[in-house]
Design a protein around this nucleic acid. Structure first.
Lengths: 193, 193
DNA sequence: ACACATACTTGATATAGATCAAGTGGATTT
DNA sequence: AAATCCACTTGATCTATATCAAGTATGTGT
């Protein structure tokens, strides 16, 4: 469980053995059954969650009860209602498990503490967020300018695992298109091959 | 010019006087005339730019020659093709000045160097990016789920300065709607008052 | 194995907003 | 001051995709 976290961090910054050992003190492991909530809207998001195994989804629910996917988190990813985590305001997102999952929870206090105890973690998070900003900017531009089919093609090229692993209706929601539309797109693409 | 930068940083982290004096060594001031490019697509984005005065826009141009606004940067904001800056790949965005502007340029080398010389700058950028991620996530969800009018209303509530200061056609592009649609929305809203 | 729930597919219809076109107004250039 | 350019407005038409509805397939629980 911690192996996944440490090797993930290793890709971005170098921690010494002492720092690595110290890391465990700041995290609380948690298991989630498929469909189990990690966070419900209205509660405060008190932890960043690092996914060491499985797959979770972050989504909000509009007035009509429709779910809108925001982020999927699987092995090696962090997941949270970030604004709620940072500011303590009630979460607008729900987070639950698409598959049986294991996460490591980092509380807000420990988030600050860990960067003081291990300053390299400031750098790690900076680099993590840099990359996240680039990805999110791409997604934003795509959502504004691409056709539904272009959106789907982009996703299936940049992240084929997602297409295999996540139910189609959730993917449609993530792309901001209707499930019927996604079904039609996939059919059209299959017929073009 | 540096005053704006230092007071902006002061809002997030505390630097001592020595560190503040040191900051100037890492930046190059630059003035831009209205409409002057800071970055053209295809070039590598070699600097992060901090806007100390004025207003800039980041946009890309699609096959049909249409401009799509990505980010506006004004006093206190950082602006760049971030992916190009981080990786050295050619920029996909153009950046130019909507108004006469003054920026402070931080090269990639100095970006790394400054965080080593002043470790608190790692923290500053981490916090900066946290906030940016929250904002961007909101914008992403809005772009996928809001109607055109809802998008405009959100923007005018969260950022009225933008509505006043930026030409309507650029705002329309930023929201991912046609200028005609924005014009209609504004007319409808005015009639409802 | 059967019953039920849910995801996916398919056809028909509706719609929010894009696109096209032209007019008006304001800014810039000569 | 006149000419030109460009932003904004307005009306008409078009369209990508949403919505509605029903059927089919798959998964889950008993």
């Amino acid at each position: 469980m911690f192996d996944v976290l440490l090797s993930h961090i290793d890709e971005k910054v170098t921690l010494n053995e002492q720092e690595k050992a110290l890391m465990q003190n700041y995290f609380v492991p948690k298991r989630l059954r498929k469909r189990q909530y990690l966070l419900q809207e209205g509660d405060v998001c008190r932890n960043l969650a690092f996914v060491s195994k499985g797959l979770l989804r972050t989504y909000n629910v509009d007035d009509k009860g429709d779910e809108h996917m925001s982020i999927f988190g699987w092995e090696g990813w962090w997941i949270s209602d970030f604004n709620s985590f940072l500011t303590g305001v009630p979460a607008v997102f729900n987070i639950d498990a698409i598959e049986d999952s294991e996460v490591l929870l980092l509380s807000r206090e420990n988030y600050e503490a860990i960067t003081l105890a291990i300053p390299m973690m400031d750098r790690y998070f900076r680099i993590l967020y840099q990359n996240s900003l680039v990805t999110k900017e791409r997604r934003l531009m795509s959502s504004v300018t691409d056709t539904a089919e272009e959106k789907y093609l982009r996703l299936s090229q940049s992240n084929p695992d997602m297409i295999e692993r996540i139910p189609q209706n959730l993917i449609a929601s993530y792309l901001g298109i209707a499930p019927e539309t996604l079904s039609r797109i996939r059919k059209n693409l299959a017929m073009r091959k």
